[in-house]
Amino acid sequence: MALFTIHVNGESKQVDVDADTPILWVLRDNLRLLGTKYGCGIAHCGVCTIHLDGDAVRSCAYPISAVGDKKIVTIEGLSEEGDHPVQKAWLEHDVPQCGYCQAGQIMTASSLLAQNPNPTDEEIRRAMNGNLCRCATYTRINRAIRTAAKDM
């Protein structure tokens, strides 16, 4: 066990966990930020995606010991009112089916648009290829990203 101070959604948090604990389980078990999901534990499905200094990081494969002073943003901290352009576009296109993967999809999409405000369709597909949607809402996800790009 070791004490780690991490920056999550603008706040400083201290947690006492094993050094190899993935950020995912610190968020869920310790901080009860439950929007970040567990899907595979091997960075293959993307439901655990968070922003680490703005990058779309898979929190299930990222040990707490490697975070340092990098800033974590989770789906809960993406916007104060749930009105980030990507979130709004997701509602406008009624994207979710079961909804389990969508927080991860939104975190990846918002990281994409922050780096590339006007992505091509090809760039969207490639950027989102690490996020599985078992309900296969991919066409709506990509439509929503195109809408959000216009609003950003």
């Binding site: 930020l33 439950l34 929007g35 970040t36 989770t74 789906i75 809960e76 993406l78 749930g82 979130q87 997701w90 509602l91 009624d94 979710p96 909804g99 969508q102 927080a103 939104i106």
Partner: peptide, 13 residues
């Protein structure tokens, strides 16, 4: 719209 849409896109449990 999906009644849980706002909760889903904001990561509610």
């Amino acid at each position: 719209f999906n009644v849980d849409g706002p909760s889903i896109v904001t990561g509610k449990p």
